[in-house]
Nucleic acid binder design. Structure first.
Lengths: 157, 157
DNA sequence: ATCCATGCAAAGACTTTGCATAGTA
DNA sequence: TACTATGCAAAGTCTTTGCATGGAT
């Protein structure tokens, strides 16, 4: 079993828990369902709000205690977009190598993958004496709409 | 005047202050000297410690109030290396497009630039309808020493 | 039955801010 | 002189943690 895509993220995380002899509680189940039930990036506070809506027994402490497990499993990645709070990206479970373009004007975020980019990064790293473990590329940019109209509809959302 | 390298970072920051009609106080001068007097990344607390060593009148509040000015000027960049605190990199003043490789085992950080990488990023961004404003690439990797010996001397530094 | 997980509220770590005073332009 | 900057300490914000209880395996 090498194909990471063979099981759904939720199942893979449950396997991760089992592998560490950690228990699958109803709160954790709710948090997992919530985290992998969206493609959106979320903050700790948002995850709490969403999970709490599904199950009132999910507390802030448990969310904060589960988040490190999610990132440790590699299925969710902690992201810093220069805001005051951290975002968590659940899409690494299915797209382990994706990158982000952030529109500076409307904060729209587009995810993309590039085999060519990955190879170039590997090549450069090798030349420098490193073997790549993970990439993290963020491009800050102005989007088409901004270029054409000088602003974005989404601005301020 | 387009050549960003024409003036030293310190002078460029003083120009930035002047342009905003902000004052050059002795505390700010010390902070600037300190920040641009190193090539090392630093945390807010380190910057405070170093600056305070040069001038006892530099307070934590002023450091925290100056840091946003440094990043706003574009001469220093806020970096998140996944630690609990943020790092500030003063090398963007002289190398606006550099990237980072972080050794996961010893935390060694190597900075590098690549015209090819930059071009590829521009190309991809354009295809997606964005015009690039800034890049931010971090590669996490294992270093040569780790590959050869299974560990790094620097580990735990 | 064992031992991990949870909620709550207190404690922490890092930043920001109000206010009276000092200092630059 | 006018107005920004500073230090100090209090206040915030986001996270972590101790403890007694509950619950998964």
């Amino acid at each position: 079993m090498v194909d990471a895509g063979a099981k759904c993220p939720k199942q893979r995380f449950m396997d991760f828990l089992a592998g560490k002899h950690l228990r699958l509680t109803s709160q954790r189940r709710t948090i997992i369902d919530t985290a992998f039930g969206t493609r959106r990036h979320f903050t700790a506070e948002q995850l709490l709000a969403w999970a709490h809506r599904r199950d009132k027994s999910v507390s802030r402490a448990t969310v904060y205690r589960t988040l490190p497990l999610l990132t440790e499993s590699g299925l969710v990645r902690e992201m810093d977009f220069g805001k005051d709070y951290k975002f968590y990206d659940p899409n690494y479970a299915e797209h382990p190598h994706h990158n982000h373009i952030i529109c500076q004007d409307c904060d729209k975020i587009v995810e993309f993958e590039s085999e060519q980019l990955k190879q170039l990064e590997n090549q450069i790293s090798q030349r420098l004496g490193f073997s790549v473990q993970a990439h993290r590329l963020q491009i800050t940019a102005h989007c088409e709409e901004f270029k054409q109209r000088g602003s974005c509809k989404k601005k301020g959302e």
